[in-house]
C-alpha cells in the first residue's frame, strides 16, 4: 500500500460520509468548506451560514452573484430550494440552542481533552473571533478538519493547547491528513489511519497518548468521487 497523506479533498470526503440525511450543519473556512462538495446528490443536508442562511448552496457563478447572498467568508454563494433567511439573533439561537447537528471547523490545536484553539494565532497583530466560539459552544457535535502537523512539522494534537482557547472539551472527532481520531472521556482513540502508515509512526507525530486497537482500519478512499 502506497504510504501517503490524504489530500484536503479526501479529508473533506471522510467528513461528508458521517453527515446523515436531514442534518443541519455549519462548515467553517478552509478544509471544512470543501465538505459541501461531497454532500450533493444522495442526501438532503441543510447547510447553515452564520449570517442568517439555512440552505446555502454552492459558490455563485459570475452571472449568479447577488452581493446580499454571501457565506461566512463573505464570498457570493447561492441558495438551494428550501432555503430560509433569518436574522443574526435567530441564526445564533440556532447555533447555541442545540439545533445545529454538526459544526466542522479548522483548528490550530486540539487537546486530548477535546479543547480547541482556532481563533487567534499568537503574533497576529489584530485578533478576530467571528462566530468560532459560538459554534464550538453550541453545536451538538463538533468535528475538526486539519493537517496532523503544522508547517514546522510540530503536532497540532497536543496534551494541552498552548494557543488561546476557543472552547473547552467540545471536540468529538479530529479528521487529519493522517488519521481519524475520536476524543473520548479517557483520551484519544485512533479510529482509522491513512494508507501505509503505522500507529507507531502516527504516535511520533501526535502530542498526546493515543489509544490504539490493532489492526487499525485504513481510511477508505473509494466509494465516493474525490475530485
Amino acid at each position: 500500500m502506497e504510504k501517503r497523506r490524504l489530500t484536503k479533498e479526501e479529508i473533506a470526503l471522510c467528513i461528508a460520509r458521517e453527515i446523515s440525511e436531514g442534518a443541519c450543519v455549519n462548515l467553517g473556512i478552509g478544509i471544512p468548506t470543501l465538505v459541501a462538495r461531497y454532500l450533493a446528490g444522495e442526501r438532503e443536508v441543510m447547510v447553515h451560514s452564520e449570517n442568517g442562511i439555512i440552505g446555502m448552496g454552492p459558490p455563485a457563478a459570475p452571472d449568479e452573484v447577488d452581493l446580499d447572498i454571501v457565506d461566512a467568508g463573505k464570498r457570493p454563494v447561492t441558495l438551494v430550494k428550501g432555503a430560509a433567511i433569518i436574522d443574526h439573533a435567530t441564526s445564533f439561537a440556532l447555533v447555541r440552542g442545540g439545533h445545529l447537528d454538526l459544526a466542522v471547523l479548522g483548528a490550530l490545536q486540539v487537546s486530548e481533552h477535546g479543547d480547541i484553539a482556532n481563533w487567534r494565532i499568537p503574533g497576529d497583530a489584530v485578533p478576530g473571533v467571528g462566530g468560532a466560539m459560538d459554534l464550538c459552544a453550541g453545536a451538538k457535535r463538533l468535528v475538526v478538519a486539519m493537517t496532523h502537523t503544522d508547517r514546522g512539522g510540530e503536532p497540532k494534537i497536543v496534551a494541552e493547547c498552548t494557543y488561546p482557547l476557543t472552547a473547552r472539551r467540545k471536540v468529538c472527532t479530529i479528521y487529519t491528513d493522517l488519521a481519524v481520531i475520536d476524543v473520548g472521556p479517557d483520551g484519544l482513540h485512533l479510529r482509522e489511519i491513512a494508507p501505509g502508515w503505522t500507529a507507531g509512526e502516527l504516535r511520533q507525530l501526535t502530542g498526546a497518548p493515543l489509544h490504539v486497537e490493532e489492526p487499525v482500519p485504513v481510511i477508505a478512499l473509494h466509494g465516493g468521487a474525490v475530485s
Partner: peptide
C-alpha cells in the same frame, strides 16, 4: 463573539439586563 454581539443588542432592544451564555466560557 459574533453570537454574543448580536444577543447583547437584542437584550438592549428587549429591555433585558443581560444574559448568561456558554460562548467564550473559560477563554
Amino acid at each position: 463573539p459574533q453570537g454574543t454581539l448580536v444577543e447583547r443588542m437584542r437584550a438592549a432592544g428587549a429591555g433585558l439586563g443581560g444574559f448568561f451564555t456558554p460562548t467564550g466560557a473559560e477563554t
